[in-house]
């Protein structure tokens, strides 16, 4: 289940193409069927579900928020932007994530245009690790969560909210926040 939740989060922050949204719908249905009514994000998911229809406007909103914002500043979806002193991409923190991936025999697929610490990559990596039942995968999850996601995702979410996003991304931000907070609690 954790794996699906991370996958959902990862997909929510990739470009909302028709293809991605189809996958999101499928995931959402599955998650809503299986999650208990007590999980903190259930209401968020219920609110999000009707929005999982393709709209060109949403791709524009995605581009505005995460790629080439004007007149607002881009909400940079890269861990290193938030974690490095000089906001430099591909910094030490990126290389750490890259190394973690390599240790699990994983790398960023060619032609995706993604960096290892792009939000989509890190969340999908968490999803992969969560789907594996071994000690090493558990350790890496803990490391990625504590040393990366927990440090930059809250700042990223704050910047995203400040950019006055469309409701789809408000809900995506809520979901991501709820998921990461819950993960941090459970690790502690």
């Amino acid at each position: 289940m954790r794996s699906q939740l991370y996958l959902l989060a990862s997909r929510l922050f990739n470009q909302p193409t028709a293809e991605h949204l189809a996958v999101l719908q499928h995931l959402m249905t599955e998650l809503l069927q299986t999650t208990s009514s007590e999980v903190p994000w259930r209401e968020t998911l219920i609110a999000l579900k009707p929005q999982l229809k393709y709209e060109e406007n949403r791709e524009t909103e995605y581009s505005r928020l995460f790629i080439l914002a004007f007149p607002n500043t881009t909400v940079q979806p890269f861990g290193s932007y938030w974690l490095e002193n000089d906001q430099c991409l591909m910094g030490r923190s990126t290389l750490e994530v890259k190394k973690m991936m390599a240790e699990h025999g994983i790398e960023i697929a060619e032609d995706t245009g993604l960096l290892p610490d792009h939000i989509v990559s890190e969340l999908e990596f968490m999803a992969l690790l969560a789907s594996q039942d071994n000690e090493k995968a558990l350790q890496t999850q803990q490391q990625l969560l504590e040393q990366h996601l927990a440090l930059w995702i809250p700042r990223f979410i704050a910047a995203l909210r400040a950019a006055n996003p469309a409701s789809y991304y408000q809900l995506a931000a809520d979901f991501l926040e709820q998921l990461i907070e819950s993960e941090i609690r459970s690790i502690k």
Binding site: H20, A102, G105, I106
Partner: peptide, 18 residues
């Protein structure tokens, strides 16, 4: 790669020993 039955969007298996 597939995760939880879905195709990966970001990740791929390293082909050669790293």
């Amino acid at each position: 790669l597939s995760i939880a039955g879905l195709p990966s969007q970001a990740l791929a298996r390293i082909n050669a020993p790293h």
